[in-house]
Simulated scan of single mutants.
Amino acid sequence: MTTASAEHRAHFDFTISFANGGGLSGDAFRLDLPRPELGADEIGTLLVHHLGLALVSSVELTNLRVVEEPHRGSRGVDAPARQASRVIDLSHPIEAGLVTYPGLPAPTITSHLTREASRAKYAPGTEFAMDIITMIGNTGTYLDAPFHRYAEGGDLASLDLATLVGLPAEVFHLQDAWSQERRGIDAATLADRDLRGAAVLLDTGWSRFFGTPEYGHGAPFLTEAGARFLVDAGVALVGIDSLNIDDTESGGERPAHSILLAAGVHVVEHLTRLADVPARGARFTAAPPAVHGFGTFPVRAFATVGDPR
Results as ranks from 00 to 15, higher is better:
residue 2 T to V: 08
residue 3 T to R: 15
residue 12 F to Y: 05
residue 14 F to P: 11
residue 19 A to C: 02
residue 20 N to G: 05
residue 30 R to A: 15
residue 35 R to M: 10
residue 43 I to M: 08
residue 59 V to F: 04
residue 62 T to S: 11
residue 62 T to N: 06
residue 71 H to L: 08
residue 75 R to E: 05
residue 77 V to A: 13
residue 82 R to Q: 12
residue 84 A to T: 08
residue 86 R to G: 06
residue 93 P to T: 01
residue 95 E to M: 14
residue 101 Y to F: 13
residue 106 A to P: 00
residue 107 P to W: 02
residue 113 L to M: 04
residue 117 A to H: 08
residue 125 G to R: 02
residue 125 G to A: 05
residue 126 T to P: 07
residue 126 T to K: 15
residue 130 M to A: 14
residue 135 M to P: 00
residue 138 N to E: 14
residue 142 Y to K: 14
residue 154 G to W: 01
residue 161 L to I: 09
residue 163 T to M: 07
residue 165 V to S: 10
residue 171 V to Y: 03
residue 174 L to A: 03
residue 177 A to C: 06
residue 190 L to A: 00
residue 198 A to T: 03
residue 198 A to I: 04
residue 199 A to W: 05
residue 200 V to L: 09
residue 208 R to N: 06
residue 209 F to I: 03
residue 209 F to K: 15
residue 215 Y to Q: 11
residue 218 G to T: 03
residue 220 P to K: 09
residue 225 A to F: 02
residue 232 D to P: 04
residue 233 A to V: 00
residue 233 A to L: 00
residue 236 A to Q: 05
residue 237 L to T: 00
residue 238 V to T: 01
residue 239 G to Q: 02
residue 240 I to M: 07
residue 241 D to I: 09
residue 242 S to G: 15
residue 245 I to S: 08
residue 248 T to Q: 12
residue 248 T to G: 14
residue 249 E to H: 08
residue 250 S to F: 12
residue 250 S to N: 13
residue 250 S to Q: 11
residue 252 G to S: 08
residue 260 L to E: 01
residue 260 L to W: 11
residue 275 A to C: 09
residue 277 V to L: 14
residue 285 T to W: 00
residue 287 A to Q: 05
residue 287 A to M: 05
residue 291 V to R: 13
